[in-house]
Computed example of a mutant assay.
Amino acid sequence: MYQWLDYFRNTILIAVFTILISLVTSMLAAYALSFIKFRGRNFVFTLVLLVMMIPGETQLIPNFVIMAKLGLVDTIAAQVLPYGASAFGIFLLRQFFLSLPKDYWEAARVDGCGHLRFLWSIAVPMCRPILFTIALYSFIGCWNSLIWPLMVTQSPKAQPIEVALATFLTSNSADWQGLSAAAIFTTLPVVIVYILLQKHIIRGISRGDGIRF
């Protein structure tokens, strides 16, 4: 029981840190692609769209090589850093930022508001539904992640709950009651979070209407 709590704690830590980092990087990148004019801005956004089309499996070996060279194998950080940027989050937030009237930024600039202040005080409060959507997608991705944690971890001190469930399935294939309890234990938190935030998800996705260049 205590070991399962350790797996549960590891998964929560991975999810929380991944969500926080991905939200920060998504907001900053999306804001730069929306409000800051620089050469190649549309090309950078096209690259973001292309990243969304690349299967995650193709990134496993390069990510593992990088984590190994950094000495982060079998750590929580190795399961957080590769997913600290979300192309999906950048896409959604950029589409929302482009829909904001330019008058907001012009009025804020007249009042002496800089880019970071405008982002934090005006843009972020208006895009909370989208932030909830990105956070939930990151949470579900972290909670259900199996292949990457299985590659990059070897000990229970850093393994998430999905790896524990896969190990339990292999070693206790005949213990159907235990397998059922473990499956419910790993699935129930995701279901609860989705039920609580489903309205925010629908609102967040509906705000990113169409692709703008």
Rank of each mutant, 00 (worst) to 15 (best):
M1L: 10
M1F: 12
Y2T: 12
Q3V: 12
Q3I: 14
L5N: 13
N10I: 07
I12R: 05
L13A: 13
V16H: 12
I21V: 15
L23N: 09
M27E: 02
M27V: 12
A29S: 09
Y31G: 03
A32C: 06
L33K: 08
L33N: 01
S34T: 02
F35L: 09
F35W: 14
K37D: 06
F38M: 11
F38C: 10
R41E: 11
N42V: 13
N42S: 14
F45M: 00
V48E: 02
V48M: 01
M52W: 15
M52H: 15
M53W: 11
M53I: 13
E57K: 05
E57I: 15
Q59E: 05
L60M: 12
L60W: 11
I61D: 10
I61L: 14
N63Q: 07
F64V: 01
F64S: 00
F64M: 00
V65I: 13
V65N: 11
V65K: 06
I66M: 14
M67P: 05
A68G: 02
A68C: 03
K69L: 05
L70Q: 03
L70G: 07
V73F: 00
I76A: 03
A77K: 07
A78G: 00
L81Q: 06
G84E: 04
S86H: 06
G89R: 11
F91N: 08
F91I: 00
L93W: 11
R94H: 00
F96W: 01
F96M: 06
L100F: 14
D103K: 09
D103G: 09
D103I: 08
Y104G: 04
W105A: 11
E106K: 10
A108R: 02
D111A: 07
G112R: 08
L116Q: 01
L116H: 08
R117D: 12
R117G: 02
L119W: 04
I122D: 08
I122V: 10
I122S: 05
I122G: 03
A123R: 00
A123N: 04
V124H: 03
V124M: 12
M126P: 03
M126H: 15
R128I: 15
L131Y: 01
F132E: 01
A135W: 03
L136H: 08
I140R: 09
N144A: 06
L150T: 04
M151K: 12
M151Y: 13
V152G: 09
T153E: 11
Q154V: 00
P156L: 02
A158E: 05
A158P: 05
P160Y: 05
I161S: 09
E162I: 12
E162Q: 14
A164I: 03
F168M: 05
L169Y: 10
T170E: 15
D175E: 06
G178Q: 07
G178I: 14
L179M: 11
A183M: 06
A183W: 06
I184P: 01
T186Q: 04
T186Y: 01
P189K: 01
V190N: 03
V190Y: 08
L197S: 08
Q198G: 13
K199R: 09
K199L: 03
I201A: 02
G204S: 10
I205D: 13
G208F: 11
